[in-house]
């Protein structure tokens, strides 16, 4: 009996954008995000024969690969150094020289804040807003569903504080 496995191209087309957004939120740089996303799908392509649809959804399977690739990236490059260079050389609003819509710029800024959270908080936010259930987030992060929920809500508050802190700094500079 043939397994009910979608074609890899379908999986690729369906998930490329979401995986990219997840990685982008992790690394804060579109160039790095492209490199890592490419690596994710290269790895996934090679391993697709071993993907078992009855054991996992394509989303959970791909995000696991993406998470591992991102961690490898940080191990290889040094997260702090990478972030510092990213922020110094690529201010969030300078990536679109033609002037993107204001909300797009706000989203970029928001993702830059996500990239500054602790590793687990960053992961919880990124996985959850990439469309995964708390159960899937917990599985990927090796914790229970409830623990994933708590982690996510703490991350959300930390993110809110970071955004508010920047707003206060910006206001003080303008006064």
């Amino acid at each position: 009996m043939r397994a009910d496995r979608p074609s890899f191209e379908d999986v690729y087309r369906d998930y490329l954008g979401r995986i990219y957004a997840y990685v982008r939120a992790q690394v804060g740089s579109s160039a790095d995000a492209e490199d890592i996303t490419a690596q994710v799908f290269m790895n996934a392509y090679q391993a697709y024969d071993r993907f078992e649809p009855r054991m996992s959804t394509p989303a959970a399977w791909l995000f696991r690969i993406a998470r591992n690739a991102t961690l490898d990236h940080f191990r290889a490059h040094g997260r702090r150094e990478r972030l510092r260079r990213t922020i110094e050389q690529q201010p969030v609003h300078a990536e679109d020289p033609a002037g993107m819509a204001e909300d797009r710029m706000q989203y970029r800024a928001l993702l830059a804040h996500v990239a500054h959270l602790s590793e687990r908080q960053r992961d919880a936010i990124s996985l959850r807003h990439s469309g995964l259930s708390f159960e899937e987030v917990g599985t990927l992060m090796s914790c229970s569903e409830d623990a994933a929920k708590m982690l996510y809500h703490r991350a959300l508050k930390a993110l809110r504080d970071a955004v508010a802190g920047e707003a206060r700094m910006s206001d003080a500079q303008h006064e």
Binding site: G17, A21, Q106, L156, L159, V163
Partner: peptide, 17 residues
């Protein structure tokens, strides 16, 4: 927090290569 969640949803939804 709800507003932030909506912004995050939009941010992840619109961030594409």
């Amino acid at each position: 927090l709800e507003a932030l969640q909506r912004q995050l949803d939009d941010a992840f939804e619109t961030t594409r290569p």
